[in-house]
Amino acid sequence: MADYKPLSRKAMAERIARDIPEGWYVNLGIGIPTLVADAIPTEKEIFLHSENGVLGFGPAPDPEHIDPWLINAGKQHVTLRPGGSFFHHADSFAMIRGGHLDLCILGAFEVSAGGDIANWATSAQDSAPAVGGAMDLAAGARRVWVATEHTTREGAPKLVETCSYPLTAPAVVSRIYTNLAVLDVEDNRFVVREMVPGLSRDALQAMTAAPVFFEEKEYA
């Protein structure tokens, strides 16, 4: 095996947080995306949105200052930053569906080279899947980024030519942050912008079930 170290979930969240410009309104999905909330420096004004009716929430509170009325969509306790606001569910999804969010970061079971995302059901026969707000977010946010491990625990690629799981939305993902690389979805291709040190192009390709192209680029 080549000598490289995949990013931890925390390091992935920190990597993503660096790329979110000040002033954006951002929704974080459940899983690795949630960790991004704790990785945004307090001096950077980014407004985090949660489906259950809060804009401008901040990191988890310390245990003595938990406010039971203040949770995020993952039902975890959060805090409110100055300038934060509360609203009801229909307004919350007006923000989502109406294209007001600059960015939504979602976890995924699979992402295709065309930007399709599957993140809610593991088969069409999954009789009681839980969709939550994922389809509204995927269809409504101005940009959809995915944060995921590059492969499943069993080593199966999650970046694929065509999704085999039921779609959350077609052709919406523009960027993917994995524990191994940062990739853009461009013209129905995965374009690698960045890899963890020590990882070879061949090794990354072997863990990706669609051709990957390499065009390094610094994000502003």
Binding site: H88, H89, S92, A128, G132, M135, G140
Partner: peptide, 21 residues
């Protein structure tokens, strides 16, 4: 649900809120 004793209609959260609205 598994025992077939409960019918389920899955609705995306925003669609649920908007249908109610």
């Amino acid at each position: 649900f598994r025992a077939g004793l409960l019918e389920l209609e899955i609705v995306p959260q925003g669609t649920l809120a908007e249908r109610i609205r």
